[in-house]
Amino acid sequence: MVKEQNTEDRIVDAAKKVFINKGMDGARMQEIANEAGINKALLHYYFRTKNKLFEKVFSLVFGDVLHVIEQAVTKETDFEQFLENFIRQYIRLLKNKPFIPQFVIHELNRKPERIVAQIQSKNVIKEQMFSIIERAVEKKEIRQIQPVHLVTNILALCIFPFVAKPMVKGLALDDDEKKYKQYINERPDEVVAFVKQAVLLR
């Protein structure tokens, strides 16, 4: 059982790499088998089709994103708690799994309805994130702003340094990996401070 689980994990990890580099349409099962260090017949034993394997990878990757949102927001969470929790947890996730933004962007371009359906199934953005922002506006804790603008601003501030790593590192950080890592370590504090400065009324 443990051996089977290890094999499946290797397949999923290999599939992530291939899907990220090639996308769903460009990926080939033989490439995934080669990356996992197994033969194609064994790959098909675990996942009969490329689509089933992609569904598995997608559910795991996007599940990580939704988990961060769910952890950051509850009905009792106030705005500043939400801001701190979400930004810090989301950037931590991207540090540990930097492939996520590219993977999600690939899928947004290929099949956007899949991501919309995943988000709607959890109701965490409109029913929880938006409501926290709306309450903060009503209480005059933050300036008047539409939740969709604030949420997309926060996401952009978190995601861009990972999506544009070659540009950020090459143009602003002397193409130095150590400087880039230090920059990423500084991002949570910088993003939290920037958003607070932009919207808090006190």
Results as ranks from 00 to 15, higher is better:
88 R>W: 01
105 I>K: 14
74 T>Q: 10
69 I>F: 04
54 F>R: 02
95 K>W: 02
23 G>L: 03
64 D>C: 15
35 E>F: 01
74 T>K: 15
104 V>A: 13
41 A>W: 02
93 L>E: 08
91 I>G: 02
104 V>L: 15
24 M>C: 13
33 A>T: 01
25 D>P: 08
82 F>W: 15
87 I>D: 04
96 N>V: 04
66 L>F: 02
15 A>E: 00
22 K>P: 05
79 F>Q: 07
57 V>K: 01
44 H>I: 01
73 V>R: 04
50 K>Q: 13
63 G>I: 06
73 V>A: 13
38 I>T: 04
22 K>D: 13
104 V>R: 07
25 D>F: 09
73 V>I: 06
97 K>S: 07
96 N>R: 13
84 E>F: 10
87 I>V: 13
72 A>F: 03
74 T>Y: 12
27 A>W: 05
53 L>Y: 04
46 Y>R: 09
84 E>M: 08
65 V>D: 03
92 R>I: 07
24 M>G: 14
29 M>W: 00
83 L>G: 00
78 D>Q: 15
79 F>D: 11
74 T>M: 08
71 Q>D: 12
54 F>E: 13
25 D>G: 13
61 V>S: 15
50 K>W: 07
74 T>L: 05
40 K>L: 12
71 Q>S: 14
91 I>H: 08
105 I>T: 12
100 I>P: 09
71 Q>T: 15
27 A>G: 11
36 A>E: 01
21 N>P: 13
37 G>V: 04
71 Q>K: 15
63 G>T: 08
45 Y>D: 14
99 F>D: 12
82 F>N: 07
61 V>H: 06
78 D>M: 05
90 Y>Q: 09
61 V>T: 14
58 F>G: 09
50 K>P: 07
30 Q>H: 15
45 Y>V: 03
95 K>I: 05
68 V>M: 07
